[in-house]
């Protein structure tokens, strides 16, 4: 009779454990409850960084511990997990995190964006449009968008509370007057739901427009800085700009050398020591799927001298 009474706080989850000696999805149940409560508040206050009792994880701080703690609080047997770093499924850290969840939660994994229910990412949003009921989990090193303008936590806390973002606009405007443009190429600040200025994590600003009214739920985890924040589906996310200096994304004059894609974010590969280069998709899954569908790039001809510019003109690709 006594056995069926399982008091919550005593259930470490040993039974469901995949890796012997550890909890299901590594975290103990009490920690998961704390993180889950935090996630719900984050969703209810879009763009606001909710402090949480981040735990020490078996991976180093700065290597995705925030994202991992969120994913660990979500993941279950019906989920299919995709992990990317720099857009690629096969970079070492992505492989390592994917393996962590296979071992600790017995998670099913995939490289196909469309198939995934949870996508944990570092520095990119996939090119494939995310759909409703998918969840994208961003790894965030510095969650505070105002940190490099005002390093004091107390001070920025006050600014967020009062929606006093003057210094951010001053900083951006200084950039324009000194450099003729906003000198921010990644981690470009956004305003969420017309209320909180938020760091989109160090994604290139090329990806910023994808965040606006995205049908998927976006969760952000910063383990070392102990913050979780969120953007619910279909929420307005605006990249900060000025009327006379509207927000623009990077464009390349060339196409992916492997799949010929003309609208994806490109990695630059140095081919030799004479300056010849090649450009390929950073999103490996996007690229592979295009190649599989018969798209081809022009990989025999490396680009001689890089000509990359910001502009609005579309690339003419295969």
């Amino acid at each position: 009779m006594k056995k069926q009474f399982n008091r919550q706080s005593e259930t470490g989850g040993g039974r469901s454990s995949v890796m012997e000696g550890y909890n299901f999805a590594y975290l103990d149940e009490q920690t998961k409850r704390m993180i889950r409560r935090t996630i719900l508040k984050a969703v209810a206050i879009p763009g606001y960084q909710v402090p949480f009792g981040s735990r020490e994880m078996p991976l180093p701080y700065g290597w995705g511990t925030g994202g991992i703690q969120i994913t660990a609080s979500l993941i279950g047997s019906e989920d299919i997990l995709k992990v990317i770093d720099q857009g690629a499924d096969d970079t070492t850290n992505a492989v390592s995190i994917r393996r962590f969840f296979s071992r600790t939660a017995g998670a099913l994994t995939t490289t196909r964006t469309r198939e995934a229910t949870i996508i944990q990412t570092r520095h990119r949003i996939p090119e494939t449009h995310l759909t409703k009921d998918q969840i994208i989990v961003y790894q965030v090193p510095i969650p505070e968008p105002l940190r490099f303008i005002e390093p004091r936590a107390k001070e920025v806390c006050r600014m967020h509370a009062l929606k006093e973002y003057g210094i951010m606009f001053v900083k951006l405007y200084e950039d324009i007057s000194r450099h003729g443009r906003i000198a921010k190429a990644f981690d470009y600040p956004v305003l969420v739901n017309d209320r909180y200025v938020m760091s989109p994590s160090p994604i290139p600003k090329f990806d910023n427009p994808k965040m606006d009214r995205m049908p998927a739920l976006q969760l952000f985890g910063a383990g070392r800085e102990k913050r979780i924040y969120a953007v619910p589906p279909y929420t307005k996310v605006k990249s900060l700009d000025f009327e006379d200096y509207p927000f623009e994304v990077e464009r390349w004059p060339h196409c992916c050398a492997l799949c010929g894609s003309g609208n994806s974010y490109l990695d630059e590969i140095i081919m030799d020591d004479r300056g010849s280069k090649m450009f390929i998709c950073s999103d490996t899954n996007h690229c592979n799927e295009r190649v599989a569908r018969g798209h081809k790039g022009n990989q025999e001809e490396p680009v001689e001298k890089a000509q990359i510019s910001i502009g609005t003109g579309a690339r003419k690709c295969a």
Partner: peptide, 20 residues
């Protein structure tokens, strides 16, 4: 952890900075 995270690939961000 944070100092050593600089060993992780950053080529996407670096590319963004290169363009700029």
């Amino acid at each position: 952890g944070f100092v050593e995270h600089l060993k992780l690939p950053h080529y996407v961000d670096f590319q963004a900075d290169l363009v700029l």
